[in-house]
Each structure stands twice: as structure tokens, then as C-alpha cells.
Design a protein around this nucleic acid. Structure first.
Lengths: 326, 326
DNA sequence: CCCTTACCTGTAACCCGTTACACACACTAT
DNA sequence: ATAGTGTGTGTAACGGGTTACAGGTAAGGG
């Protein structure tokens, strides 16, 4: 690979002139510029971005910390981040943290040593300081953890309310909520939305815990239906959980949506692939990912943020696991 | 962030000594070592990997070029690559190429400029030279493209044969094959496996094309069932396609597996989530990803490869879209 | 004709590690 | 006493860019 020195020699100028041409900075005569340009193309010269990084202390790389790319919620998010990053000339480093504090710390250290330009966080096991001390721009995606960090999330509370109200409107009288993990903000908000509505309207209800896996959701659902056979609707905190509920319900021959309504949350593609397709409170996942990437890059490029916190709308996707459809 | 000079000053030694301690190379007295170690921990010094990269022309980063992370086949692969990479101290840069020649070229250039240490390729739009000219270790994953490049793939031809034979054994007499894109080697091999079996056994069959999306699969399946209502089995080249077929079949009230058997290929988690769960020719996806990462890192670290090409076994996951189950 | 200003260019320091090389010392072998 | 080996340490060049600074030329104004 040719270096800037080779180009300089070939074009009979100094490296400074080459650099000036490359960066379109400072004065360069037309003649010199042409020579340099020709040298660059003749030698097929590509500036070395590591050397640039070293000097500028930036890397044109951003990190995306997610719990697990194989959780179907994240690929679309990652895709959006990557798409936006690419258009601005950034590359994305994906880090699966498994919500493990040690892996997270390990990644943070590695990324910092590489002069990573910014971080999108959908995970926050470490204390806030650990992130802020990195001294680089951050965006919290889906989960918020500090009011100093710009955040992109969706209206989880409202979405949960809408879902619950919809189930009730369709005639359900005993609703189960399968909630997500406790330390996760969206799961808490969805739970609150559910609880507030059922309590306001005096509807019989039950809440059970579940992690992010479908296997767990199936176990939980099985136990639920055995213990409370009269449950006539389930609001699941994720589409994965809803899919698990659906599978169990079909196995025990419940008619969907006649005997049991199911509504999920997230709006992942899986929901539509199932039969019956799952009604869900959809978040604009791609949009959230893209938005957070833009928000991050804006910070990196020292632009002022007009809005620091985005709460995007959720919309109910009316599909086949709920009755009536308006 | 402290630099090696700060550490040297604090420990009253030269930077060379600090470097020697860091890399455990050359002679260092016990006393000096202790001082340096103390300085490192007192100052919380972390060596700057960009500077290291510049000198060593390596980056401890590997690139993973995939068509699209939101295609459910890839997250598990990416996850495996990332897990292995992490244990060897590498970070992974994910590149969604969309099978687009220009995006691929753009990534290749960016990665090369960053001194990327190696590449795992599941995509090959560019000509072989473009990859080999990078002068870095490569691994072809899922698709092979040159006998100079170590490859990890699964026995697509055999898997397809097994699937087709299984459908026939279960009594199907008119089998459709929904094949994948033409330029993709695994799709071709699966097609050949299917064709050879139906021709050997003189079974009525039809082959139709389809891309990687479920929407397309649904369109294709709809057309197929309208035109050939007597089709009694479908072998789809991917689980996504199989899911599309299943959905269409259920919509037109075909009894699965009584009226119609469906078998997919890949073994993505989705297959199990559906009801009925899709019988599929499963590839050990995680294993393939992990294997290719190890293969790549071995090359990067100049170890000799005892085996250069891995063809992993496929296994039929007997589930609910096929009859009998042995 | 002198001074200012715009334009153009090169030298060298800098970013932060790594390592070749030189030098110094202690000890053994001859 | 002298050469040779193993230790221990520092200086400086290097990797490949960027840029402050110095210095040079030409044009325009007074």
C-alpha cells in the first residue's frame, strides 16, 4: 500500500501539499493539485485511517451495545444504525453484552482504546459514571439511564394502556400480563400502563414475570392457563412472549381470538409470520435505530441538538389474535 | 487519558522500559517492573490500540460481511463470530452489503484502511480478486468462491436429498421446490439435490424461484397452489420461504401435514415458533459461525490449518409440517 | 519603491506506541 | 588481563498521517 510519502515523491511535492489536497485545506496551486490527484490515482493511494485516528483521536467508528443480536428485536435496530452510520462514513462495532457487567466493561475498555467516536446503548448494567467517564457522545436507545444522555425510546406506558384498553373494549374480563425483567425500564413502563388501566376499570388481572426467551414464555403461559383457566386475554410485554403464549394456547386448543385474545409489544417481523398473526403494539424499530444513530453522529460532529429526548409513538397493529379491528 | 510517557515519567524509567513491561519482552529488572506496574495502576493507564495498530499494521478487528443482519439466518451466525472473536481479543465489524457490489467495495476500502486483520465473507458479489488482493486472511462462510480461500459450509446437496427423500417416503407424489437465488451456491446445491432425487425416483415435480423474503415466498406459493392444486409437498430452500408457504397453505385451509407436507432448510429459531412447527433441514448455524471465526483467527495468527474446508452435516429436525417422524 | 496581503510550499514536530541499536555493568571463561 | 555472555536501560527512528510555522513569490495600494 502506498503512503502519502510515495504520493508526494511521485508528484514531486511535499507530504504537506498532498495532505492539503486530500483535506481540501489551505492553499494549493492548481498545478500542484493536478499532479497530486494524478499521483493518487496512478498509485491507487488510500489514506490510512489508523494514522489519521492517531492524530485526530477519532476513529469514524461507533459502538452499538446490545444485549444479544439473536434476540429478534435487535437485528432491525442494528440494521438501521448501520445504514445511517454508513451514509455518514462511520462503521459500526456490535457488542453483545448479554446484560453481563463484565462483558460490558471489557467492551468499553476495548472501544475506548480504539478511539471509538460514540456509543449507542441499549443496555446499562454498569453505573452511569462508567459510560459518562468515557468522555464520548452517547445515546440511550430503548432504555434511558441518565438525563444527561440523549434518549430515544417509545411511549411504552401509553402503548401498554392502549393495548389493555383494547382488550377490555373487545370484552375480555380476566387479563393476564406477562411482564419483562425488572431492571429494564420499558418493561416497567408497560407494566405500569397495564396496571393503571385494569385498576381504573376494575378488571380482574394477574401479572407474571418472564425473561426475553420464548421457552420461558411458554413455561409461564402453561402454568398460567393451568392455574387460571378463565383467563380470556393476555397482554405480553414482548412479541416473543406473545408468540410463546400463542403456541401454548393452540396446543391446549384454545380458540384464538374467540376464547383468548393475545396482544404483544414490539412489532418484530415474527409477529406477522405466525398464524394467526399476532396483534401487537408496534414500535417503529427501524426509525428508532436510525434516529439514535443520527442523534449520536450529530453529537460527534458537535452540532447542537434541538431535541434531546425522543419518545416515539407506538401503534397497534391489528392482526388476528384479537377480536374486532378498529 | 495517560500515555506511555506519563507512565514512564511517573515510574522514573524510559518509555522503552514501560513498553517492555507491557509486552513482557526483553530484559527488565524486578525493581523497574514493579515501579512500572504501580505507575500503570496508579494512573489507570491503558495502552492506546490505535498507536499499536499503526506500528504493527494490525487492528485486532475482523470484518463480517453479510447480506443483511435482519435476515433471521444471520444474527445467530454473527453472534457466534462475535463470541469467538471476543475470547481471542478481537472485535467484529458488521457490514450489511445487501448483495450490492458498490456497498461491498465501499466496505472493503474502509476496512482495509483500518488495517482490518481478516474477513469472513457470506457474500461475494465482487470478483474473487477484489478480496484476495486485500492481502489479509479470509474465510468463506456458507458460500464458497475460491479454492484458495478456506470455506465453511454445510452439506447442502445431501441435505436437500434427505429432505426430498423424506417427503417421498411419507407418500408425497407431486413435490414443489421453492428455490433460492441463482448466483447463490447453497441455493444451487439444494436445487440439484432435489432435482436428482425426484428424477431418480420419477416423482412429479415443479421448481419455482424466490428471493429471501417471506412476502415473495407467499406470492410464489399462492401462484403455485392456484396453478397446481394437487401439489402435496413443498421443499423450500429456506425456512423463511417455508414459513411463507405454511401461511398461504393455512389461509386456503390445507390440512398440514395431511394435505400438504412442508419442509424448510436452515434451522432458524423461527421454524420452531410457528404452529405447526416447521420440519427443516437444520444447519448448525452457531457452530458454523464459530468455526469460521476460529478458522480466520488461526490464519491471522499464522497457525497452520490442518483442514481448510469444512462441510458440516445437516440434520432433519422432524417437526409438525411433515408426516410420520423417524 | 516599500509595505501589505494573498497565495504557495516545505520542514519538522506531533499523535502514541514499538523496537533497533548503543552503551553500561556484572560475571565467567581463557 | 581480556574477551565474551547475559542483563538492564535509554535514545531515537519509525509507522502514516496532520498542521504550525517559516519563508518565498507576486500583486496591489500608497
Amino acid at each position: 500500500m502506498p503512503t502519502i510519502k510515495d504520493v508526494a515523491k511521485y508528484a514531486s511535492v511535499s507530504v504537506a501539499t498532498v495532505s492539503r489536497v486530500l483535506n481540501k485545506k489551505g492553499y494549493v496551486s492548481k498545478e500542484a493539485e493536478e499532479n497530486v490527484l494524478k499521483a493518487i490515482s496512478d498509485l491507487n493511494y488510500k489514506p490510512n485511517s489508523v494514522a489519521r485516528s492517531l492524530y485526530h483521536k477519532t476513529s469514524k467508528m461507533i459502538g452499538l451495545l446490545i444485549p444479544d443480536i439473536s434476540n429478534p428485536f435487535f437485528p432491525e435496530l442494528a440494521r438501521a444504525v448501520e445504514d445511517v452510520a454508513l451514509t455518514y462514513g462511520y462503521t459500526v462495532v456490535i457488542c453483545n453484552t448479554d446484560e453481563d457487567i463484565r462483558k460490558e466493561a471489557q467492551y468499553l475498555e476495548a472501544l475506548q482504546q480504539k478511539y471509538i467516536d460514540g456509543l449507542i446503548l441499549t443496555t446499562n448494567q454498569l453505573s452511569t459514571d462508567n459510560y459518562e467517564n468515557l468522555g464520548i457522545p452517547l445515546v440511550a436507545l430503548d432504555r434511558q439511564f441518565s438525563n444527561r444522555v440523549p434518549t430515544v425510546s417509545s411511549k411504552n406506558y401509553e402503548g401498554a394502556r392502549k393495548a389493555t384498553e383494547y382488550l377490555i373494549k373487545n370484552g375480555s374480563e380476566f387479563i393476564a400480563h406477562i411482564r419483562g425483567p425488572y431492571h429494564v425500564k420499558p418493561a416497567d413502563d408497560r407494566y405500569r400502563g397495564f396496571k393503571d388501566v385494569v385498576e381504573e376499570q376494575g378488571i380482574a388481572h394477574i401479572v407474571v414475570d418472564c425473561d426475553f426467551t420464548m421457552t420461558n414464555a411458554m413455561e409461564v403461559a402453561k402454568g398460567l392457563f393451568e392455574k387460571y383457566p378463565t383467563i380470556d386475554a393476555v397482554f405480553a410485554s414482548s412479541d416473543i412472549a406473545a408468540a410463546g403464549v400463542l403456541k401454548v394456547a393452540k396446543n391446549i386448543n384454545k380458540q384464538i381470538p374467540e376464547d383468548l385474545q393475545i396482544i404483544g409489544f414490539d412489532g418484530i417481523p415474527l409477529g406477522e409470520m405466525l398464524t394467526p398473526a399476532i396483534t401487537t403494539v408496534a414500535q417503529p424499530i427501524y426509525k428508532m435505530g436510525a434516529l439514535s444513530a443520527r442523534l449520536l453522529i450529530k453529537q460527534i460532529e458537535k452540532q447542537l441538538l434541538d431535541v434531546r429526548n425522543y419518545e416515539v409513538e407506538t401503534t397497534i397493529q391489528y392482526r388476528e389474535t384479537t377480536r374486532s379491528d378498529t
